[in-house]
Design a protein around this nucleic acid. Structure first.
Lengths: 230, 230
DNA sequence: CAGTGGTCTAGACCACACA
DNA sequence: GTGTGGTCTAGACCACTGC
């Protein structure tokens, strides 16, 4: 006689939802009842149900109980890797190049975006990441010098700012946003595209406890896809 | 004297990682030691560490121990809502329209994508989703009739196939993929764009235990962004 | 107020992976 | 073999929230 694991419970619950034993928008038995039925402890049921709720399958409320979510608003998890890892995972050789580097007063649009004061200074970097010597990603990066003073002494000629930041600067919050755009003349040059070709854009902003750390716009050329399975 | 919660433990661990008390790539004390230090039970430590590992902050291996991940390959979670909810969340009025509907033999590219036999029949739908009467999303949907026979009798004139599928057909696996494209003439017409304008594309394929259920290509026009925070 | 889920505990046994 | 995390248990108290 095997013990009932929380995975068993999850599987059984999922099956019952799929075969409509437990219809959408209806309440299912409470934890104590399920523990009795499955012959396991309440903690085991709890873990199973908690995970299903995190996955968006169930909706749980104290006192009210556990309901089958009518429209499984499921969460897709995307792994956001380092460019280096992303390139090397395809078997291609990774190469990095620094295009430009300058310290300047934060431009108004960036001040607005990061809630910076009007005397803020930022480090602005343009970088290129190659896969087998073909341009893979163009990185337009802005780093808030007030939050990361030592960035002025950092050397970005051999290693990208993202890797440097990840290893040197802690952060607490991230906002990530994907969109589709077309290449302007400069971007087309850098990514070896024709102007007007579609570009996949990822914008990432990070903070360290309310202090803005960095804003980056990452542009990917032809054929880039971001994929996940669940 | 408050009890130490698993949230407290997570917070403390995160702080120690951020201030380099526990450097990247080094091992941290085992669960028993941490439980003793924090004055809580091992289960509490375990839950905290398990969640941090799920979030990509820690790397755990039996016998080896728990290591601080050098490059926090953090997971971004995206909520994938129904179009209706996505539109209504902005305060706009949602409207749906069926553009076309036909049953036909699965075209070769779809057979390849879904591993269908060469006699497979599919239902092909084109739909439009509006926000305040402006086109918001164009949906190009293919449904495998062998897996979902009753789809032939379904009425898609008032409700989109996605809502119908979610409420009627269970699924076990999903593949989701984002990319950037430009509008061709047809898409430009439907989304009220000029040909060549950028389009954000989401492709979703779902299965029910190895049986392909549906493939959908969702196209979003101007200004669409997919955003998350963590 | 009372029923539900949320969490903690102390202990136990087990599976895995490294030596 | 042996130390680590992975999981289950039985019980307890608590927090939220709907009645």
């Amino acid at each position: 006689m095997e013990k009932t694991t929380f995975r068993d419970v999850k599987q059984t619950v999922l099956t019952r939802i799929r075969d409509k034993t437990w219809a959408p928008d209806t309440f299912i038995p409470n934890e104590v009842a399920l523990a009795a039925e499955f012959g396991c402890s309440r903690s085991t049921v709890n873990r199973a149900m908690r995970e299903l709720a995190e996955e968006g399958i169930l909706d749980r409320k104290r006192k009210a109980g556990t309901r089958v979510n009518a429209t499984p608003v499921r969460n897709a998890k995307f792994v956001i890797p380092l460019v280096r890892d992303e390139v090397e995972a395809t078997g291609a050789a990774y190469r990095y190049a620094l295009v430009s580097r300058e310290v300047l007063p934060a431009p108004p649009w960036l001040r607005a975006r990061l809630s910076l004061g009007d005397k803020s200074r930022v480090l602005h970097l343009n970088c290129l990441h190659f896969a087998n010597n073909a341009p893979f990603q163009f990185e337009d990066r802005w780093i808030n010098i007030a939050t990361v003073p030592m960035v002025e002494q950092a050397d970005f000629s051999a290693r990208g700012p993202n890797e440097w930041l990840l290893s040197q600067v802690p952060f607490t919050d991230v906002e990530l946003s994907f969109s589709a755009n077309t290449a302007d003349a400069q971007l087309a040059d850098f990514l070896a595209l024709s102007p007007g070709e579609p570009v996949f854009t990822a914008e990432r902003t990070t903070w360290l406890n309310d202090n803005p750390v960095t804003f980056a716009r990452l542009s990917f050329g032809r054929g880039y896809r971001m994929t996940t399975r669940y």
